[in-house]
Structure formats: structure tokens, C-alpha cells
């Protein structure tokens, strides 16, 4: 569609056109609203949102927190534009039982459309590239971990997790991990699909029926872990949770020795 009826009729450079748009009072007022909204989302994304999330106990979880903050910041201006302009029009609504007079008849504005596409593509590109970089560094870390990793075989069964430490010859219903040692989880399900989710470690993968999946991470903070199932797995899905601990290497060795008898008390 042509832009004969464009918002701005002059044909100077796009830069001048843009400047002309911003000279309009209504654009500036709407933009002010937008800035306010952007600021609010900045605060939510940067501080309020992360405060809801549990303590990060691995670099994976740390990077997820960072990523969520950055994504919120990227989207804050988008929220600002959309909400700023809609708040402005809402405040200038027409009241009454009869329809308002016809508004201006412009049908498009190629400058605005073009700018919109470019900016949204750019923001999208930032998100994509950032995500790919994070993924890449995660898989580089995986390669690093492989050398020195402690293997934990995770078995999901309806409706409990069990853990086998082949290196130590220990089995447990709790996930005990030494700090700062890479750990490689080999996950399998003996019945339906589950999803292995040690919440504070920021990793997750499905436990598929009789098919092994692998994830790795390095716990770097002492504390309790919640291990949950994130895939509906039947009657007691809600109760398919267990606890875990990240402990010092010494504590871990003590725990291993105490449980090598074949049972956990």
C-alpha cells in the first residue's frame, strides 16, 4: 500500500521526518508515559523478579538469573512504547453514547512501519545472539566437565527419585553432591516420562522411559537442593520430590563412608 496519506507529508530525509514526528506534542506526551513504563519494567526485571527466584547454587543457575534480567531489560522499552502510546489514547478516549467524529484518515506510514520492523528485528537478534552465546558457553563447560566429572545415575520411577553413585558404590533417595566438583547426571525412567529438576542447580532434563539423557553442572554453593519432577507423571506427580544437599568434600566423603553398607538411614 502506498503511503500517500502518510503521517508526515514532506519528503525530506528519514532523519528529518523522525525529528518532525517527535516535535508533535502528543508524541512527546506518549513517549513520556512510555519512559515511565520502561522504568517500572526495568525495576521489576532487575530487582523484583530475581528476588522471587531461589538461591543460585551453580553457574548455570546464575546465568539463568542474569539472562532473565537482561531479557526483561531488552523488553522494557517495547513495553514502554506499546503501553505508553496506548495509555495516551486511552486517556483521550471519547465518552458518550454516540460515535465520535471520524479521526484522521491516514492509512500507513512507511517510515514508522520500517523503523518498527528494524527495531524489533534488532531486539530479537540481540535475544537470539545472547541466548546462543549462553548455550555455547554451557556446552563448552560441558566439555570441560567431562574430564573430572562425578557420575550420578538418576532413576525416575513413579513417584520417587533414586540416585546411584557408581564411583562410590552408594545408592540414595537424596541427592548429595560435593561442592565445586563437576557432576554428570545420567537420567533414565523405568516407567513413564518424568523430568529431573534440581531447582537450585538450574538444569533440567526429561527422564525418558528406558532412554538415557545426560546433563551436567557444577554446584558452587553449600546448601539445600529441592529435586522435583517437572513432567506430569501420574497420580503422585505432585509428591515426586526429594531433597538434596551440596556439601563440602569432607562431609561428602563422610556421607559416602556411612552409606557404603548399602542402605541409607
Amino acid at each position: 500500500m502506498s503511503d500517500d496519506h502518510g503521517l508526515v507529508e514532506m519528503e525530506p530525509t528519514p532523519g528529518e521526518k523522525l525529528a518532525a514526528i517527535f516535535k508533535q506534542r502528543e508524541v512527546r506526551v506518549a513517549t513520556a508515559w512510555g519512559v515511565l513504563v520502561t522504568a517500572i519494567f526495568f525495576v521489576i526485571g532487575g530487582w523484583i523478579y530475581p528476588s522471587w527466584m531461589p538461591t543460585a547454587m551453580s553457574t548455570d543457575m546464575k546465568s539463568i538469573e542474569r539472562l532473565i534480567v537482561i531479557f526483561t531489560w531488552i523488553s522494557a522499552p517495547v513495553c514502554g512504547i506499546v503501553l505508553g502510546f496506548s495509555i495516551y489514547t486511552f486517556l483521550h478516549r471519547h465518552k458518550g453514547d454516540t460515535p465520535p467524529a471520524d479521526g484522521p484518515g491516514f492509512r500507513t506510514n512507511s517510515l514508522v512501519v520500517g523503523l518498527w520492523v528494524i527495531v524489533s528485528s534488532a531486539l530479537c537478534l540481540v535475544a537470539v545472539v545472547y541466548g546462543l552465546i549462553e548455550m555455547n558457553s554451557a556446552s563448552a563447560a560441558t566439555a570441560e566437565h567431562k574430564k573430572n566429572a562425578m557420575v550420578v545415575e538418576v532413576t525416575g520411577s513413579q513417584w520417587a527419585w533414586s540416585f546411584n553413585y557408581p564411583e562410590q558404590g552408594v545408592q540414595s533417595h537424596e541427592l548429595m553432591l560435593p561442592i565445586n566438583r563437576p557432576v554428570e547426571f545420567k537420567i533414565i525412567s523405568v516407567d513413564v516420562n518424568h523430568s529431573f529438576w534440581p531447582v537450585q542447580l538450574g538444569v533440567k532434563v526429561d527422564a525418558n522411559r528406558l532412554q538415557t539423557t545426560v546433563i551436567d553442572t557444577t554446584p558452587n554453593k553449600l546448601g539445600d537442593i529441592d529435586v522435583k519432577c517437572a513432567e506430569l507423571c501420574g497420580l503422585y506427580h505432585a509428591y515426586m520430590e526429594t531433597s538434596g544437599k551440596v556439601m563440602s568434600a569432607d562431609d561428602f566423603n563422610t556421607w559416602v563412608t556411612a552409606h557404603q553398607g548399602g542402605h541409607t538411614a
Binding site: T155, S157, A160, S162, N164, Q171, H173, V190, D191, G261, G262, H263, T264, A265
Partner: peptide, 15 residues
């Protein structure tokens, strides 16, 4: 058993 782990006695006094 599907998951052999549950053949163990866990959590009792004295195991």
C-alpha cells in the same frame, strides 16, 4: 521391581 533401589530398607531405626 521396576526400580531396584526400592528393594532396600531405608529410613528405619538401624536400617
Amino acid at each position: 521391581l521396576n526400580a531396584p533401589f526400592f528393594g532396600k530398607v531405608v529410613g528405619t531405626v538401624g536400617g
